[in-house]
Structures are given as C-alpha cells and as structure tokens.
Design a protein around this nucleic acid. Structure first.
Length: 602
RNA sequence: GGGGGCGUAGCUCAAUUGGUUAGAGUUCCGGACUGUCGAUCCGGUGGUUGCGGGUUCGAGCCCCGUCGCUCCCGCCA
C-alpha cells in the first residue's frame, strides 16, 4: 500500500502545502500535534509546522488509534496517508489547507512531549517569565514565527538593497577596546594580559570610519551593538542590531537620499500602511522641540505647539507672567473641535500634565457664547485674539498652555501633545510618518557639571567648521548631526564626521578635553586622520525597532528570537551566571561582591 | 539608583471592600461519543493566596519588610 521505499522518511509535503489538487495522492507530513478533537469514533488532529496546519484524521479501526488518542499536544509525529478532498460542509475556510484532510494509514512518534508549561493553542500568552524560560515553546506560536520570519526577510532585503547600491558588507571586531564616551561597556577580561579588558563594541563607529580612511568608500554591516544600559519597551537590554552605514565623499543630503530610499523600500515591501512620499520632511532640532516638544515627533498627531510667551508677559495671569519674567516661556497646544468635551476631560489632562512634572495646565475653550476656561478672565480680548491668530484656534476649539523654563516647558508640552493624540484617538494606525531631525546643537550646557559638553556624537563635524568653533558661542554651534524618526520612534542617529584633526582638537577643547586626552583615547583615529582621510558620514538605523514597527509590536522582545528580560537576564540559558574559581583564577579576577549578593551566592 | 502597576490552582481570572470549608473557565488525568475544526458531555486531581513579620476575635483583602515580573524616570557618545 504505502511505498515506503519511495517516500521521504519525514515528509512529502509541509503542513501548509496540500490542496484539493493533491486529493487521491499519498502524502507524508511531520509536525507538532497542535489540537486534538477526539470523537471516540474518529480522531481529528491539527498537525502544525512552520508552514501551516493540516487536519489529519485517524479512524478507530486503525491499530494505532488508541496510541494517537494519548498523544500529548506539541509531540512531534510523522503521519502518512491519503489526501482527501473534504465534503463541502466540512471545509474549513480559516485554513489554506482547509479544503483537504489527510486520512492516516501509518504513524510514527518522533518525539513525545510532556505536559507543557504554556499552552500554545489558545489566545493566552502566559506569564512573561515562563514565556522567556521556555522561549523555544513560545517561539512556536504563529505570531512569533511570523515576527522572526519577518525579521529574517527584512534583514535579507536590507542586504540586497545595500549591495545593489554598491555598498560592501564588513565584519568588525567584537572584542575591542573600551571607549571613554557613551554608554557603559560590557567588559571581557583578558587571560593573557592580567588586569586588562576587552570591551564589546557599543557600535562599530570607529571601525567603520577607519574603513572609510582605508578607501572602501561605502560600508554597511548588520552590526551587533552592546551597551550596558537599562531596558525599555523599545530597547532591548545589552545587545541590539543596527543597519550600520558609512559613506565617503558625501554630503548630508546624499546620505539622506540613500537611507530614505532603503527605508521607504523596506517599509513598502513589508507593510501595507501608507508611507510618506520621498523625500521625507526635514525638521531642524529647535523647530521640532518647539512644535512637537520632542526630538522624535510623532507626526501622526495633528497638533503643533507654538510659543505665546509674549502674550502672557504683560497679562494679568501672574503665574505665567512671573515665569516669563524669570526667563521662562509659555507654550500653546491647540486642539480642534473639543470644546464640547466634559469638564472631566480637561481635569484629566491637567492631572496628566502634573504627572509629567508640570505645575499645572491652563486652557481656553472657544465656545459659541465666548471664551471659557480658568484663565479666560485674566486675558484681554486682544491677547485672546493673538493666541487665536497664532494657534489657529476658533469656535469649538481649545488651547492648552504650559509654562516653565524653556527645557521643561518643551518636554511637558510634548508629553501633553502625545497624550492628547492618544486620548482623542488622533493617531492613525495605518500610516508611517517619517522625518529627519537636522541641525542638532554641537554642545549643550550640563547643569550638573556646570560645563559645556557634547550634546551628541563628539565626532560630528560642526557646521561652519573651525571658524564656527573659534568665533561662535559653543551653544549656538550646530552639527551635521541628524536623526531619522518614524511615528515618534527614533530609528537612528547619524552624522557627517569630523575628519580634520585640528578641528577635532578644537571641538574637544571646547568640551574640556586637552589634546593629550584626545590622542590618548582616540589615538588610532587621530593617526588615521593625519594620513589622508576622506570626508565621510553615515548613520545606523536600528534593525530591531524597524522590525518592531513593521510587525506592529509594542515590545521589542516580540521581534527578537532569544531576548533577555528587563534585568538583562536570559532566563532560558541562565545568563549571566557564576563561573568556576578556576575560570576566575585564569583571568586574574577576585570577586569583591556587595554584601547582599554574597548572601545570595551561598 | 528612583517611581507606578501586578503577584490567588499549570494558565486566565473571581472572591459582595476584614467574616464560615478561597470559586469559575481552561489545562491536566479518567470515562462517554463516527465529522470536528477553541469539538461536546460526565467525573476527578490540582491552593503555604509570591515570601517573612505585624494589627485583629478573625487577613487573599489592612500595615511593614522582602522577592519576582512589568512599565516609566535616571541612563542610552
């Protein structure tokens, strides 16, 4: 009956392959027992593999019938039988294979499963800790199979697109040296050099720049990056991947054009959402901070903040007037068509503003009968007219006001803007809104240190070059430093690099680093720049975040096959873990644990 | 390092706001059942209410501490 000799030992088809056109043929399938429906007289099993689900049927006269009844979910089995077209009333339109079923003549258990800690057939996800500890089980779910497969396809597409543009793919060292700037490093002790450490790269930043100095012209890498920083929902602890890019002899606009093309292509290829037409809009940093209260604005929210400090500077509203008098500002957040919202809505917004650090949240409401709101009585008609003129507010609209020093005021106004967008359901879930944030300041004033520090990448070229560094107030100098942002999510930072040693020394001097320090910390790079370095620049979009946006996931763990938990532990592999005394001895390391940890060890 | 949320059966949750023996669905185990597709029906197992202390005649519920998970702030050149 079954021509064993001619059949593959495990399968002739995948579980997503069979169709009515296969009816009447013999087929062999292997997969996981997903669901069983046992009618006593007939047993239905949904057999699942990566490609799909096929219903297999076992009849009671078969010698193996009772054995199959005992199969536990997630056991791996091979079944062989005849493909049958289902009768019209038994077709399952939810499955691609739903028009056929496999009537089984032979079975073989490849791997019997014990009772599961998670059940995969239902909608319930189960506790996060169990999901992570049994990640290989969780990964069997359709959603994660889809996400991880999407990630694979996105990365392939990135490679294809970059290669097509003439970029070469490189590998750079994983064991490298600790960098003084930036995040905390992951350190790896050296056995051969007692007391010395490698560091895992926070990014291949210096290597890719050196490859430009080497003349490779166009670099890319799907680069693993390691940073010992705490996790967020959109930030995996420890490690993540970047589509790392660097180009020689380019202007900022050429980098934008290259990256826009890749990003637009990827997002078009893997999503049905509407994507902004090219070129993506460019927003100077200061404008973004004013209009959106953020350097990663969610442009899906149709609200633009404006400054109305001058209107309140001579108003009767003391709270705001005094803040403006002390160098503060007043920011207006206009919202269309919410005048008829109940008082509780406005109260809720006030409470929200306070929860993010605001002293309060004032507002005006443009009603038929006139201007309402707690601060209306303090404002002269011409002031209200000025606010209406600047914010576009009219009948039926409302404007919220935040007053504070410029930094906090921007931030709070930005938070209120996003909260309004969420609360009022203004965020269109079917669009990807991209923008470039450009003209980041080169330096910022660090209140804590009481000194000028680099606000972003110290290797960025200052706009205006040496002349700007020598003549301008450092806080007014802009850098060729940019971010690409999608739906309020920062996908990447990038910059035109500073490849001129003299400009580099000057730039670091302003941030308080003497030339010796620059040479000591970045000797390799500085040496390279004295031996013929091309002007160059680049960017490094976050792969995990891109996949997360495309997969419509709000937590980055859902697009990483083996993620760590929030405390940077791998619950499945039990990392980090203790090591033997012998290992420590070889590395010349003696532990000096805090008291609490010592207690835990024993 | 700090703040918020959560923690009750393997899982998802309930327990009339401090009151009798902590329930339901699901999983699991057993039984019945020849067309289901989250099969159905019957029965059963399953609990140190995260842990420790306190208040109280009485604590799943209140208080203190602690542990775990999660979200956020700090941090992320």
């Amino acid at each position: 009956m079954i021509r064993e000799n001619f059949m593959h030992p495990y399968r002739t088809h995948t579980c997503g392959a069979l169709r009515p056109s296969d009816a009447g043929t013999e087929a062999r399938l292997s997969g996981w027992v997903f669901r069983k429906r046992d009618h006593g007289g007939v047993l239905f099993i949904d057999l699942r593999d990566h490609y799909g689900i096929t219903q297999v049927i076992i009849h009671p006269e078969k010698s193996f019938f009772e054995e199959c009844q005992r199969w536990r979910p997630e056991s791996v089995v091979t079944v062989t039988g005849r493909v049958m077209q289902r009768t019209p009333e038994t077709v399952n339109t939810d499955l691609p294979t739903g028009a056929i079923e496999l009537v089984v003549d032979d079975v073989k258990v490849q791997s019997a499963a014990e009772t599961l800690p998670l059940h995969l057939a239902g909608d319930e996800e189960g506790p996060e800790e169990t999901r992570l500890r049994y990640r290989f089980l969780d990964l069997r779910r359709e959603r994660l199979q889809r996400n991880i497969a999407l990630r694979s396809k996105v990365i392939s597409s990135m490679r294809r697109r970059m290669t097509a543009k003439g970029f070469n793919e490189f590998q750079t060292p994983i064991l490298t040296s600790s960098s003084p700037e930036g995040a905390r490093d992951y350190l790896v002790p050296s056995r051969i050099h007692p007391g010395k450490f490698y560091a895992l790269p926070q990014a291949p930043q210096l290597f890719k720049q050196l490859l430009m100095v080497s003349g490779f012209d166009r670099y890319f890498q799907i680069a693993p990056c390691f940073r010992d920083e705490d996790a967020r929902a959109d930030r995996s602890p420890g490690e993540f991947y970047q589509l790392d890019i660097e180009m020689s002899f380019v202007t900022q606009d050429e980098i934008f054009a290259t990256v826009e093309d890749v990003m637009h292509g990827i997002f078009t290829e893997f999503s049905n959402k509407t994507i902004d037409a090219l070129p993506f809009q460019r927003i100077p940093y200061r404008e973004s901070m004013l209009k959106y209260g953020s350097d990663k604005p969610d442009l899906r929210i149709p609200i633009e903040i404006s400054d109305v400090s001058d209107v309140f500077a001579d108003s009767d509203f003391n709270a705001f007037r005094s803040v403006v008098g002390k160098g503060g500002v007043v920011r207006a957040i206009p919202v269309k068509g919410i005048a008829n919202r109940p008082r509780s809505f406005f109260d809720k917004m006030v409470a929200f503003a306070q929860s993010v650090g605001s002293k309060g949240l004032a507002y005006l409401v443009w009603e038929e009968a006139g201007i309402k709101g707690p601060i209306a009585k303090f404002l002269k008609p011409e002031s209200i007219a000025a606010i209406a003129g600047r914010t576009g507010a009219g009948n039926g609209d409302a404007v919220f006001f935040v007053s504070d020093m410029p930094g906090p005021a921007s931030k709070i106004a930005g938070e209120v803007r996003v909260q309004l967008g969420r609360e009022l359901d203004m965020i269109d879930p079917n669009v990807f809104r991209f923008c470039w944030i450009v003209d980041f300041p080169m330096y910022e004033y660090d209140e804590e240190l009481g000194a000028v520090t680099f606000s972003h990448n110290p290797f960025s070229m200052p706009q205006g070059g040496m002349e700007a560094l020598e003549t301008k107030d450092p806080l007014d100098i802009l850098a060729y430093q940019y971010d690409i942002v999608c739906n309020g999510c920062e996908l990447s930072s990038g910059a035109i690099r500073n490849h001129l040693p003299e400009v580099m020394y000057k730039a670091f001097a302003i941030a308080g680093y003497p030339p010796e320090t620059v040479d000591e910390k970045f000797g390799g790079l500085m040496r390279a720049f004295r031996l013929g370095a091309p002007p160059h620049g680049g960017i490094a979009p976050g792969v995990d975040r891109i996949v997360m946006l495309l997969a419509n996931e709000s937590n980055i763990r859902e697009v990483i096959a083996f993620p760590m938990n929030q405390k940077a532990q791998d619950l499945m592999m039990n990392a980090p873990c203790t090591v033997t005394e012998k290992q420590l001895r070889e590395l010349h390391i003696r532990l000096n644990l805090p008291k609490q940890a010592e207690a835990k060890e024993s």
